[in-house]
């Protein structure tokens, strides 16, 4: 199989089409970047003395990385027309594994290995047996959460010191979390936009059957997205545990839904094939700004549920799908 970029272009038409397709896939990212900017300006104008402070920004930059990383992983699964509800549980399991009575050089690889296994099981269940992704990942989510609670029934334990050192702290006022996002985000963007895997993933997500008939390793690619998602969740779990300096078997419970919200707000369609990691940055940024703004404005946390739910509905209503239902 030859690299698609090496094919001759027919009078520039292919190149033109490819550019259009690329822009079409990213149209959501532009919209969410615009929304992000508007919310940013509104907050800056209305709450200048609270919002526009170095302390608030470093707080935001320290808080958001787990969600950005988990959301980036979710983006891959969504692009392959899948769905991963187990993200939150994998984050919790990672946190629980870090609290095991073992040296950190054992627990960290163990946590990542566990995540890869969860991803493989998810992928196998969805792709090889044909169970709907929501049911499969709901089931594994329940199993993994049970496992996390078995390993660590109550919050506690001390996070590995080297990990804490890699999370808590800053360079020239920029929290380390920013570099975590830079690293994972860089890999994600590279994977999606500069590798064969990324190009194939878009094709598989847009139409799995025709991609398979065209000779793409459809099953391997879709299983791969679940492994990526679980690995990203584990990295988010490592970060979160180190930030809290201790483990909590329920730490990921809210992040599962938020990871979908972040990707959806970033313009990734849940039906697959449209969107990408760049939009996800802005999508998670919107969530972060809104939460931050509501906290700073002293709005009751109860309203935040309402706002989050409304945002989720609006974000998926922006682009009409053909399908009805799931």
């Amino acid at each position: 199989m030859s690299d698609t970029s090496q094919r001759p272009s027919f009078g520039g038409l292919t190149a033109r089409f490819r550019l259009d397709a690329r822009l079409y896939r990213q149209r959501g990212a532009a919209l969410s970047a615009l929304t992000f900017t508007i919310i940013f300006v509104v907050l800056a104008v209305s709450l200048p003395e609270n919002f526009l402070t170095g302390r608030n920004f470093s707080n935001l930059l320290g808080q958001l990385p787990p969600l950005v990383i988990a959301s980036l992983g979710q983006t891959f699964v969504l692009l392959g027309a899948g769905f991963d509800l187990s993200v939150g549980s994998v984050i919790s399991l990672t946190s629980a594994i870090l609290a095991l009575d073992l040296h950190w050089s054992m627990t960290i690889p163990l946590a990542l290995l566990a995540a890869v296994i969860v991803g493989l099981v998810n992928g196998w269940g969805v792709v090889k047996t044909g169970v709907h992704p929501i049911i499969m990942t709901l089931a594994t989510s329940s199993i993994v959460q049970g496992l996390a609670l078995t390993l660590l029934p109550v919050p506690g334990g001390v996070a590995p010191p080297p990990l804490v050192a890699m999370v808590q702290g800053d360079i020239l006022g920029i929290p380390f979390g920013f570099f975590w996002v830079l690293a994972v985000g860089g890999i994600a963007i590279h994977l999606m936009h500069a590798t064969r895997f990324g190009a194939h993933l878009y094709a598989v997500g847009a139409n799995s059957d025709s991609a398979r008939l065209s000779g793409l390793p459809d099953a391997r690619i879709r299983i791969g997205t679940y492994v990526i998602s679980a690995t990203c969740a584990a990295i988010a779990g490592l970060y979160l545990t180190a930030r809290l300096a201790s483990s909590d078997p329920n730490v990921g419970s809210a992040l599962g839904l938020d990871s979908v919200l972040g990707a959806a707000l970033g313009g990734t369609l849940l039906s697959g094939g449209i969107g990408g990691p760049i939009g996800t940055f802005f999508g998670v940024g919107i969530i972060g700004l809104l939460n931050n703004g509501m906290n700073l404005a002293g709005i009751s946390p109860f309203y935040q549920h309402v706002v989050k739910g409304t945002m989720l509905i609006i974000s998926v209503s922006l682009f009409r799908r053909k399908e009805l239902g799931l």
Binding site: H305, V306, R320
Partner: peptide
């Protein structure tokens, strides 16, 4: 209505309304 009129994914719509309804309950 949201699922049929907006053709939005039922998973996401019901997750969204769940969040809204939970918030309303808290309020």
């Amino acid at each position: 209505v949201l699922i049929t009129a907006l053709r939005a994914s039922a998973v996401v719509v019901t997750l969204g309304t769940a969040s809204v309804v939970t918030g309303v309950g808290f309020l």
